[in-house]
Design a protein around this nucleic acid. Structure first.
Lengths: 343, 343
DNA sequence: CTGTTAGCGCTTTCAC
DNA sequence: GTGAAAGCGCTAACAG
């Protein structure tokens, strides 16, 4: 584990200056004679030179690294999102610092700080915190960011939204057209704006199609997710279904706040020997990869996770590179994916 | 987006030197008088100081960042692994650079190089490349690494293995004890040592329990996964099941190389109206989160993904911090998770 | 305790 | 085309 060779070593051996070596080895388009150039490249190879990017980064104040903060990579929605982000980042020469906030505002805050200290200039974040003071501060200090899921107003930053409210409405419309009038809603707590909007859409749909809302059919968890809990959504789906099935009036269809919850619902229905979709239809939300893998394959609403990731990253990098200074606000539209869980 | 304040600014305003400021602000245990210390902290706050870690990193030659290279974060096995890694990294003050190799040796190589240039001193890798020349070079140059899945010999690095061969054997033993004698094996290509070992275990089991191996029951994909293909394992499971069901002799149980493949198998069986487990039992491998969410819940072999991630990261960081210089080789043992897909 | 100073490895004026 | 030299922001001898 000896000393690494630096451009200084190369300059010495090639009888030239560090300036010229730098010009050649950093692919600058600064003119350097062909012979010298070749010599430098040759010597660099001989000495087994590996550039130390920290030097460059310190000098140029550009770390070519972006940060990503999400609740948990274990959630397939986020893993697809991150894959999309990383694919673009990689193709444009950036690396990606991954941070799982575990839905903890404290952790999120810590990450925000340390990423910024590491000179991350671009951030893609699905913020859990209600308090955007720090985020705002950082943006003022020069951080570029693209936000997901949550409307963060009051400062300049691009945002990618998904029309949850419309999605909720579309779900009800779809179910209503299939003849359903007793449609349950099963959800984890409405602690995120996205969930609230989905629920609003559910209500919108009832109004629009003149279906009365039966409170017994709305089962929203009151208990918040524990930070370290695994498979929370799934288990909550089970729990809420049990509650639902104890009520006097049973639904003919269940609309779930996400696919994992829907899996829990289907699981409990199967346990109680209720056939999906023959006796009760189930509709999910997200269209994660597994939605097509369960039996019956889940009818759901697509959130274009991978594409959202790519889009977010391109947006961010354009912004970072000054290729586009204006901040965009994108509202992606839902699409229903018909499979077999709704009849 | 003005100039950031540096320790120099603080030193000036607090009438002291950068050395002292650094001592205070970097939590060094170097003695500094209480008054001066307080003053520095106060001024730092006033000036809204944010340390620039690049300076420190360049100086100390320690980036407090580790790299992770995996095939794809979209695979739930890897996302749990990465979560485990990140949880430990975070708790020990490190950040994590995530790289998806997409099973491309070229991409893997590129990541290896760029990570090293970024002064990443620790790496956790599930290598796809057969050629470990570069990896070896980097380790010689001072990179610490922990490898997964693949035996990389010839140089010092910790490795975490899983006993795939024994797992294969255990699966057959389990199935045999349930009375199965016609056990199919469905797998993606045996391009990774882990898969080969699983298959060896399958054969071991047949030998041990005196079951003759019927080649018709062994369906291993010949077509390699395309780099950008999504849900490959799932679709391969479907495809191989179709092939299998065309044969004269049908199995009473199917052992799959991983859970995703098992989902494909179950899906196709359902499509052909074959009941699981009444008519054919299905056994998976990995115990990803979704294994308990499908219907029927999948009986499978546990690979302790999250724990492996934590372990790998702790190992790596101990090594980096010189807390343990010896390189460990760990072989984790399989455990059968009984659910409902085997009868 | 405190300050001076010399870099870490690289880029980038600026002068030649 | 080329090189000298001044830093980027920070830490760590070393001297006092």
């Amino acid at each position: 584990m000896k000393k690494h060779t630096t451009i200084y070593d190369i300059a010495k051996k090639a009888n030239t200056s560090t300036a010229t070596v730098s010009r050649v080895l950093s692919n600058s388009n600064y003119p350097v004679s062909h012979e010298l150039r070749q010599k430098i490249v040759k010597v660099a190879k001989e000495l087994n030179y590996v550039p130390n990017m920290l030097g460059r980064q310190l000098k140029t104040n550009n770390s070519m690294t972006i940060g990503v903060i999400i609740p948990s990579i274990t959630n397939p929605f986020y893993s697809s999102l991150v894959l999309g982000i990383e694919d673009i980042a990689q193709s444009r020469g950036y690396h990606l610092l991954l941070c799982n906030s575990h839905r903890s505002p404290e952790l999120e805050k810590k990450y925000l700080k340390t990423l910024f200290e590491k000179q991350v200039k671009g951030l893609i974040v699905s913020s859990i915190s209600q308090n955007h003071k720090l985020l705002k501060e950082l943006v003022e200090k020069g951080l570029s960011m693209v936000a997901f899921d949550q409307t963060i107003d009051g400062f300049n930053s691009s945002q990618i939204h998904f029309d949850f409210r419309r999605a909720g409405l579309m779900a009800i419309e779809y179910l209503w057209k299939k003849g359903h009038k007793k449609i349950a809603f099963i959800s984890s707590p409405l602690s995120r704006p996205s969930r609230k909007d989905t629920y609003k859409g559910y209500l919108d749909g009832h109004k629009q199609f003149n279906i009365s809302v039966n409170k017994d059919l709305v089962q929203i968890a009151s208990r918040e997710e524990e930070v370290s809990e695994r498979n929370y959504e799934f288990h909550n789906g089970i729990e809420m279904t049990r509650k639902l099935l104890k009520k006097d009036e049973l639904p003919t269809a269940i609309f779930c706040c996400n696919d994992m919850t829907a899996f829990g619902v289907m699981n409990e229905l199967a346990a109680q020997e209720i056939k999906v979709p023959e006796q009760i239809s189930v509709m999910g939300f997200d269209n994660i990869e597994f939605a097509e893998m369960v039996t019956p394959p889940l009818t759901t609403i697509q959130q274009p996770d991978y594409e959202m990731g790519r889009m977010a990253c391109n947006l961010l990098l354009d912004q970072l590179n000054g290729e586009s200074t204006e901040h965009v606000d994108i509202m992606l539209q839902p699409r229903i994916i018909e499979r077999k869980s709704v009849q």
